[in-house]
């Protein structure tokens, strides 16, 4: 059903992984000169993704390089240890896939969706009013991918549901697949080799540079060291307010407050002081 040209277009597919496995490369082969085009293409994928949020599909007949470069991009990215870049790369690759998927025949879309992604997707030929639907997609598969899409047309109340299936047009199906593709690439765990080949090191460094150039340096926020009353949940603030007004607070409320304060790391002496002044208890 899928040709090698298809695998070059969609290197995230299960069939593409299978193809790579069958080529029988080991990690050391990366060092061989014949692998340079693969490394170059892997780097260009990353560079485009990080700089533009897009990856273009080159007019090439070197399908093997296209297919192989994808897992190598993943490998390099994993070696940088930069999680945030992973998502950007995944989205960029998924967008590229969408542009190609939307031009595919319904048969091929169905093959990809049901094969790699295990969707329950039926072909239909249905017109309701002006709308033409090509597919009926199982409700859970639809929801998993549509909840992140914000346009009103993706909201479930605006869809046509029929006995557990959501009708979709061809282009919509491709768009939902884009979401699935992004998810698959993000969750793809690149198996890190025990000792990354030396030859990859410059590519990893180069990618790190690209990441800080395009994504900046991550900001870290430090949690406050002392309890901040404004940041406490309303129920806790309510208990404190009641105590401030010298109102009686039930045992469970006092217990919850003490437990909460201990949990957020309030000083024990501080808590006891709160007890003694407000609750008129002795320290024994």
């Amino acid at each position: 059903m899928l040709t090698r040209a298809d695998l070059a277009k969609y290197p995230f597919l299960a069939e593409a992984s299978e193809y790579v496995r069958e080529l029988g490369f080991s990690i050391d082969d990366i060092a061989s000169p014949e692998f340079t085009p693969v490394l170059d293409r892997a780097t260009s994928r990353l560079e485009e993704a990080l700089s533009k949020g897009r990856v273009s599909s080159p007019a090439t007949d070197d399908e093997r390089t296209e297919i192989l470069s994808f897992p190598v991009s993943n490998l390099i990215l994993s070696l940088t240890g930069e999680e945030r870049a992973k998502r950007r790369f995944a989205l960029a690759e998924a967008k590229r896939a969408y542009e190609l998927l939307r031009q595919e025949t319904p048969e091929k879309l169905q093959h990809i969706a049901t094969g790699t992604f295990h969707w329950t997707l039926r072909r239909v030929d249905l017109q309701l009013g002006q709308r033409v639907y090509d597919f009926a997609l199982a409700l859970p598969d639809y929801l998993r991918n549509a909840t992140s899409l914000r346009e009103p047309k993706w909201k479930l109340p605006n869809r046509v549901l029929d006995h557990g299936f959501v009708y979709t047009a061809r282009d919509e199906t491709a768009r939902l697949l884009e979401e699935e593709v992004a998810g698959r690439i993000v969750n793809r765990s690149a198996r890190l080799p025990g000792r990354p080949p030396k030859l990859l090191q410059p590519r990893v460094e180069q990618t790190r540079g690209l990441i800080s150039k395009w994504l900046g340096t991550p900001q870290t926020f430090e949690l406050p060291k002392v309890p901040v009353p404004e940041a406490m949940p309303p129920c806790v603030r309510h208990v404190i307010e009641q105590l401030d007004e010298a109102k009686n607070v039930p045992h469970m409320g006092r217990f919850a407050l003490a437990a909460f304060l201990l949990n957020i790391g309030a000083d024990q002496e501080e808590i006891v002081r709160l007890f003694t002044t407000k609750w008129n208890t002795s320290e024994d």
Binding site: L143, R144, A146, T147, P152, K155, L156, P157, N158
Partner: peptide, 14 residues
């Protein structure tokens, strides 16, 4: 995803 189910039943956002 369940929120979408809820909205569908309520016709919310339709």
């Amino acid at each position: 995803e369940r929120k979408e189910i809820v909205d569908y039943v309520l016709g919310l956002g339709l």
